[in-house]
């Protein structure tokens, strides 16, 4: 008996990749999903951190989509490998620090490599791309760049817009019927909505600003600030996770404060006490503050004054703040809360 044709679908958790996988499944192809965790993905962790999001479903959208489709989903940690994509994107950045074209090339290439592994043995790769839908990564010219530079070439099938593109290997070989694929084009979402209704899908993730923090202006500004302050473009996972949490205030190039904005963020920052100087008001209720960098004693005192401004003692003459150093050394400071007018806007990253 012949081996079934197998395809691996890039599943982001959004509607288009869900539809693309479904279109191919409808043709009798065995489909499994793949999802890459870069560290910049929006969902899961952010919902888990902020108390105000606790009521939201904490589902992983890609897993949820896999369940709706009834397929396996393989989630791959690409945090380390992704650094070269973000730090030196061959095709440059989008509006913010989002290297969308390089990112797509990387992910299709990773999916292809994974699918060709002996124990997996897949025949082609599916994405939910649509010609003209995104200004950089989903243009007719850049979509051919993705196919070529990922190495997938004509083993990359885009079922939602395939009829606008040259026939790929799965179409030419008859593994899928080109006539049952689609010719969507442009930013109009109505055809996708209609197809979703046809398949009976009534729910899907629509994260505001997309599924990647790098498309977010404020996040990108914090990342650029991190690189500028360190004098090098590099990062560890903790760095980029902390950029998602708290107020970031940089009084001087050699240190910055990360001040929790609410209970959930304070609890998350607690986990970093062993790596950073941690400040907490003790005379009044208030947030936790971490100091990232190399502050001297005067800097720590200034940090305590800024922190006092965000505590319930902001109107008090003095607030007591305890500073804990990673080695266990503990200092008690009595400080005057810094008035908001004395905190320059430029300090807020």
């Amino acid at each position: 008996m012949a081996e079934p044709i197998k395809a691996v679908a890039l599943i982001s958790g959004g509607l288009d990749s869900m539809l693309a996988a479904k279109v191919v499944m409808e043709q009798g192809v065995h489909v499994e999903g793949i999802n890459f965790f870069t560290g910049f993905c929006v969902e899961g962790h952010t919902h888990a951190i902020r108390a105000k999001h606790r009521a939201r479903p904490k589902r992983n959208n890609a897993l949820w989509v896999a369940e709706q489709l009834g397929i396996k989903l393989h989630i791959i940690d690409v945090i380390e490998e992704y650094k070269k994509v973000l730090l030196k994107p061959k095709h440059g950045y989008g509006r913010n620090l989002n290297p969308c074209l390089d990112c797509k090339i990387f992910m299709v290439g990773k999916a292809l490599a994974w699918s060709f592994m002996e124990e997996h043995g897949f025949d082609f790769v599916i994405t939910g791309e649509v010609v003209g839908q995104r200004p950089k990564s989903q243009r007719r010219d850049t979509m051919s760049v993705i196919a070529r530079e990922s190495g997938a070439d004509d083993r990359l099938l885009r079922p939602l817009c395939a009829r606008n593109l040259k026939p790929t290997l799965p179409e030419r070989e008859g593994w899928v019927d080109r006539g049952a694929l689609y010719g969507f084009e442009g930013r109009n979402r109505k055809p996708q909505m209609e197809l979703a209704r046809k398949f009976g899908f009534t729910d899907w993730a629509q994260p505001a600003g997309g599924c990647c923090f790098l498309t977010d202006e404020q996040y990108s500004r914090k990342l650029a600030d991190l690189w500028n302050s360190r004098g090098s473009r590099d990062y560890e996972l903790d760095d980029i996770m902390l950029l998602k949490v708290g107020r970031h205030i940089r009084p001087a190039p050699h240190y910055k404060l990360i001040v929790g904005r609410e209970e959930g963020e304070n609890a998350y920052l607690e986990g970093y006490r062993r790596q950073f100087i941690a400040l907490r008001p003790t005379s009044h209720k208030g947030p936790l503050c971490l100091i990232d960098g190399k502050p001297d004693g005067r800097d720590v005192r200034l940090a305590a004054r800024v922190l006092a401004r965000y505590s319930q003692g902001r109107e008090a003459d003095r607030v007591t703040v305890v500073a804990n150093r990673p080695g266990g050394e503990c200092t008690e400071l009595r400080v005057a809360p810094m008035p908001p007018s004395e905190i320059p806007a430029a300090w807020h990253v």
Partner: peptide, 28 residues
């Protein structure tokens, strides 16, 4: 410690054919 695991690990097990037989919470 991430409460999201209470949703995500069972979901992953369901799509891969494994079984969550017990969950327990002790504080965080």
């Amino acid at each position: 410690t991430d409460p999201g695991t209470l949703e995500d690990i069972p979901a992953w097990c369901r799509v891969h054919g494994h079984e969550v037989v017990e969950t327990e919470r002790d504080g965080r």
